[in-house]
């Protein structure tokens, strides 16, 4: 309804026995609710609106068609649900589960954890590197301060130094390319990881000898 003329037509229509289309519009929502209530297995309310809607339903072929289709869906779902509900799980489920419960943690999860331990500090370092480099890497007028660079090489982790070198290349430009040998990074051997795994990669390939990492990584 959009305004007074509609409202007037609605009132007059109801007094005069009702325009079928209006009647449908009035009762359809309640009928739809009745279907939902049926779908939920509840009992229908015994009120004036419900009685009027059902009276209309008996007289209206269009609403019967509308509601009948929905009821068909509800009945079909109930039947389908009942059929699924009779199904039993195949045997052997507990055996499968107890095997999984007894099994050690999957290696994949361990790998992910170790990878996380390695990747997270690198990412964090890469994020803070530009700021760090601005403080440490360059001194007056864009010249590279060798002493600072050496200090950074020793003190900051590999990833930070690598990022610093990239940053320097951008900051300094072609003329100030540093000597690659001077940029060698000393790798300080780290202790075992918190879960006791030596960080040499051997945990990933049991029984396979993993060559030791070089003490110096050329950049």
């Amino acid at each position: 309804m959009t305004g007074w003329p509609d409202l007037a037509r609605f009132i007059l229509g109801r007094r005069a026995g009702g325009d079928p289309a209006d009647e449908c519009a009035i009762h359809r929502p309640r009928l739809a609710e009745l279907v939902d209530e049926r779908a939920l297995g509840g009992t229908q309310a015994d009120d004036a609106a419900t009685t009027a809607a059902l009276d209309h339903l008996w007289a209206c072929a269009e609403c019967q068609h509308e509601i009948a289709d929905l009821l068909l869906v509800v009945a079909g779902l109930q039947r389908l649900g009942g059929t699924v509900n009779r199904l039993e799980p195949p045997p052997g489920g507990w055996r499968r589960l107890s095997r999984r419960l007894a099994a050690p943690r999957p290696r994949g999860a361990l790998r992910l954890r170790v990878a996380g331990l390695v990747v997270v500090p690198i990412l964090a370092a890469l994020l803070v590197a530009p700021a760090l480099v601005r403080d440490l890497g360059t001194s007056a007028a864009g010249a590279v301060d060798a002493a600072t660079r050496d200090a950074a090489t020793v003190a900051v982790p590999v990833a930070v130094t690598h990022a610093a070198a990239l940053q320097r290349a951008f900051d300094i430009g072609d003329g100030a390319q540093a000597d690659p040998a001077a940029q060698a990074v000393e790798v300080v051997p780290r202790g075992p990881l918190p879960d006791g795994i030596e960080p040499d990669g051997s945990a990933f390939l049991p029984g396979v000898a993993v060559p030791p990492m070089p003490a110096v990584i050329p950049q």
Binding site: L34, R38, T43, Q44, A45, D46, T50, T51, L54, L57, W58, Q64, H65, I67, A68, D69, L71, L72, A75
Partner: peptide
């Protein structure tokens, strides 16, 4: 065609008495 066999609408009225 109108193939859906209408379920019994009577059931709906019966349950409200």
């Amino acid at each position: 065609t109108q193939p859906l066999a209408a379920p019994d609408l009577g059931e709906m009225g019966e349950s409200i008495g």
